[in-house]
Design a protein around this nucleic acid. Sequence first.
DNA 1: TCAAAGTGGACCATTTAGGTCCATAATATC
DNA 2: GATATTATGGACCTAAATGGTCCACTTTGA
Lengths: 166, 166
Amino acid sequence: MEISRRADYAMRVILDLAMLPSGMRARARDIARRQAIPYAFLQKIIRDLCAAGFIEASRGRRGGVRLARPPESITLLEVLEAMEGPIRLNRCSREPHLCPRSSFCAIHPIWAQAQAYLEQLLGSTTFAEVAKRGRQIRMLQSRNGMNGESASLNQELTAVRASEIK
Amino acid sequence: MEISRRADYAMRVILDLAMLPSGMRARARDIARRQAIPYAFLQKIIRDLCAAGFIEASRGRRGGVRLARPPESITLLEVLEAMEGPIRLNRCSREPHLCPRSSFCAIHPIWAQAQAYLEQLLGSTTFAEVAKRGRQIRMLQSRNGMNGESASLNQELTAVRASEIK
DNA sequence: TCAAAGTGGACCATTTAGGTCCATAATATC
DNA sequence: GATATTATGGACCTAAATGGTCCACTTTGA
């Protein structure tokens, strides 16, 4: 019950790239700084994201990584599952055969319901949508002079959040 | 992302007791057998459930455990959180201050939304409801002669599940 | 009195999480 | 073509959590 830091970081990497102008590269160092991810750890995560086909990297001067697919086509669920394997809330909630009791466990339907909701929510949210929201937030912040503690800013951000995707 | 076996077992213990006639005791050995929980592990879990006030135990001959509160008053969420601590899907989804980026993380609202759904679902389902469903399933099974593999039984169970709580 | 229960705590192996470090390979620029 | 810069691959590491086990001891009903 809690996704790994690794998966969280991976999602932030994709978000970071999705907020860049289309096709633009970013260096791992910069992503690490912007997203507050330990650089040495990020190195490994980037490898995994490459292997999974979400990003592509180029070496040498002016190298860096960029999205390998349009952000409209990448869902939160996809990245999450690429890093963690199929998500599930309980051992039995995805592969019921793993639990010999699933055929008569009265709690099982609850897990199945929660699982279905999660898959629906995360599977229908793309990084394009999230990046759009991220740009809105960034605009509000820069308008308020980067002062992350301003009360009025926080109010506005809350408002942005309240008008929730979906 | 996946509750511990410990929490899963704990929930099954409460369910097991909730399916018994009100106030009736069960021996740990029997619960272990019925719920397929390693007995030695169950010993510890029962202690925790006692300490948390969900069940009460008595020793000696004819001893055993029983619910300390009416099953109508115990939610899935309560037991889960007693065993795992406050549930959360991502580090930031419950206590946003844990993530220095939460004030401008565009993914955060998604986690908050999923989190809220989970809390609502698990927090509004009581063991009385689940036990009722468990009794329905048990009736269907005994009517079909305990053959867990029967196709018609599985169809009926699916139907029972489909008429989902809430 | 004794057998059948729960109790408390010590112990344990394995896995996972969450990293670090670095030598190497590729490449743009001077 | 040297050099600085960037990603790459893999070895390595520590701490904590997970999922248990074991057992001496206490309590209690028959």
